[in-house]
Design a protein around this nucleic acid. Structure first.
Lengths: 250, 250
DNA sequence: AAGTGGTCTAGACCACCTA
DNA sequence: AGGTGGTCTAGACCACTTT
């Protein structure tokens, strides 16, 4: 049995399974448990920390979910070597803009009812010339325009929920997801693009500046598409960061 | 108590806690459990499915990790309304290129030892004029150049691990993370940019075409930076997708 | 006081892998 | 056969919220 000197504080506010998971993570960060190597078995950990099987099991499950280790039944638990295959980017930065409402404002450039042209009717699965609600907004942070947003909502005169849906698909609703909504799911994609003149003007950058285009389609609980739109984010102001591997301090 | 007609199959190969979690997810997708609404309590679920507390607990924990529900101690478990605040993009597509080695090849454009200029020494925390290894590669899929990669590795004549590190930081090592490596962690960031002439030429696209720039810095187990580099990914060939909310079919 | 989520125990049994 | 991960039980106790 491997020597596992450290012990856990059973009187801590921190649950035992968190402490054990953190201990293992630290050993990895220190290089004591090496990538590709095997961890002490669950029964060894159980004995060392004097906890029940379920507790050490939860610790391993936690590390498993976080992609820190791999388990092979009957064989052992192994430290995952780092790789680019599990890289994920969170749109935190994008989200943060809307958290602090102080220096941030949403400028409504346009709202109105129009007739769907070909590209829109195709995206929303409706007919040409059907009525749609058009929204165009500018998101400004610290007096600087950061994001241009245009969105098309299906206009259904039979349903008086239009206002509710507008609120739901509004920026506020999307980011501070407090309200009960009729949105069931959404499909998002992000690509690199360059800005056409009219958007570049609004964002105070030169034409053809680089930008992220974040496209979104939302569905209601009948699986019907209810909105389509794009966020154009200035490439010089948006950079999404992430980390892989094992940080030393937890 | 809410009527929960369905039951689980205790003889299934599928663990009870998975079945229960899937059941709840289905109810949400069907619109029976609505966003913002409360789920049946754990004791109700326990009685309904005739399982122990720990089992139903695991189900809820699973949904919690996946961002499907929120729990408030003493109050209940609630269905998370969808929002953009938890959107994450996985670089699957990027990774997939390197999985299928058939129609994919890596063309090594240049490899050699150089002296670090200002920008490089700053990134790698070394001195100007220190020796570095320069790598320039082109990733080709289906005869089409997709990604240009340039990377700078610290050259340390005292350590003969240079070759090993080169393998580790090679594309193969990064994506098929099988080998034990000395890489401890990495910092990644992605931004939208436009291609300078020399890269645009290599990628067979016009100058100033949009592209993703994926910057990476890797650290060894002494927390020393060992490499810095950038992937330039053609904007017209890369689009990262993701979904939020509740899919109907599981 | 009653109900809710949250942690933990001390066993049991199973499936799987390595000898 | 013995060790490993994986699931599950039937209770217990705690912290918190609601009434």
């Amino acid at each position: 049995m491997i020597n596992l000197p450290e012990n856990i504080d059973k009187n801590s506010y921190e649950p035992a399974y968190i402490q054990i998971a953190n201990f293992i993570r630290q050993q990895i960060a220190k290089g004591i448990f090496r990538p590709g190597g095997r961890l002490p078995s669950e029964s060894e950990l159980r004995k060392n920390f004097n906890v029940s099987p379920m507790t050490v099991r939860r610790s391993i499950n936690l590390l498993l979910d976080q992609g820190v280790v791999d388990t092979i039944q009957g064989s052992g638990t192994f430290v995952r070597p780092i790789g680019l295959d599990r890289v994920t980017f969170h749109l935190d930065e994008f989200h943060d803009i809307f958290k602090e409402t102080e220096n941030t404002k949403v400028k409504l450039l346009e709202v109105g009812i129009e007739r769907a042209d070909h590209s829109i009717s195709e995206k929303l699965h409706i007919n040409n010339e059907d009525r749609i609600i058009l929204l165009r907004r500018l998101l400004i942070k610290d007096l600087e325009p950061m994001v241009y947003h245009e969105e098309y909502l299906i206009y259904d005169p039979l349903k008086p929920i239009v206002e509710a849906e507008m609120e739901v698909t509004s920026l506020h609703g999307l980011f501070h997801n407090t309200s009960k909504s009729d949105l069931k799911r959404g499909e998002l994609s992000i690509e690199a693009t360059t800005l056409p003149e009219y958007i570049a003007l609004l964002l105070s950058v030169p034409e053809n500046s680089p930008a992220f285009r974040l496209e979104h389609i939302f569905y209601d609980f009948n699986n019907k598409r209810i909105s389509w739109g794009n966020f154009f984010c200035r490439g010089d102001r948006f950079r999404f960061r992430t980390e892989i591997g094992f940080a030393t301090d937890i």
